[in-house]
């Protein structure tokens, strides 16, 4: 049976097509999900893509978090449904309280777009099993509100429980606390990531193909389950 991964389109999503493409290149079947439709159409996992859902009004991800599809995704994620939130998707996961902390305005106030070196810190999540812990990858990063913040106690807890999934190397591009680029929930099925692995899946269009691992990871995880 083919593994089916849903990719949600919100009004203002930008990277839903690239995420679908990455899912396909990894060998799974992408399924387009619509923000206004509660039905997940039986998918095995969900990607919340990047973009500016609802124009980033109020706060990034704050309105999307209450969309009909998110109601089902939040309930599913608590039961173990694998969910990967990229950029705006990460913001939505934090606003949904599926992940702790929040994403705030870059400390230097500029939108940033660069090829970013990362270190995969946790290779045991549903979305990072294709990597080795400590592996360095380069994928595009593009955000205006990508600064990860949380109180010291939450940061210490994330570190102690190995829930920092990826960390920025060389430069901290947005003021994220402790160079955090991505985190996971306690169960490891929900991962939020500020950089964009879905833009690094083909040599023609990406700086590398390092991002493909996030999508092959979920395939491997679901096939072995």
């Amino acid at each position: 049976m083919t593994t089916r991964i849903g990719v949600v389109t919100f009004p203002g999503s930008l990277d839903d097509r690239d995420a679908q493409r990455a899912v396909r290149l990894a060998g799974a079947e992408p399924v387009a999900l619509w923000h206004g439709d509660k039905d997940l159409h039986g998918v095995d996992g969900v990607v919340l893509p990047g973009g500016f859902s609802y124009g980033d009004y109020l706060r990034c991800g704050a309105i999307s978090r209450f969309s009909p599809v998110m109601e089902t995704i939040i309930a599913g994620a608590r039961e173990g449904l694998p969910v990967l939130g990229i950029c705006n998707g990460f913001q939505i996961l934090c606003e949904s309280h599926l992940l702790p902390g929040a994403l705030t305005r870059n400390d230097h106030l500029h939108f940033i777009c660069r090829d970013q070196r990362l270190r995969i810190e946790n290779a045991d999540t549903a979305w990072t099993g294709s990597y080795e812990a400590g592996q360095e990858i380069v994928v595009p990063l593009k955000n205006g509100e990508g600064g990860f913040v949380a109180d010291e106690r939450t940061l210490d807890m994330l570190e102690a429980e190995g829930r920092v999934v990826a960390r920025y190397l060389e430069v901290n591009p947005n003021g994220s606390r402790r160079d955090i680029a991505g985190i996971t929930n306690e169960a490891g099925n929900v991962v939020g990531l500020m950089p964009h692995p879905e833009h690094a899946v083909e040599p023609l269009t990406g700086p590398t193909t390092d991002g493909l691992g996030f999508f092959t990871s979920i395939l491997k995880k679901l096939v072995n389950a």
Partner: peptide, 10 residues
């Protein structure tokens, strides 16, 4: 308002 301990670059 942002909490006092949260950086407000704006």
């Amino acid at each position: 308002m942002l909490k006092p301990e949260i950086l407000d670059p704006q």
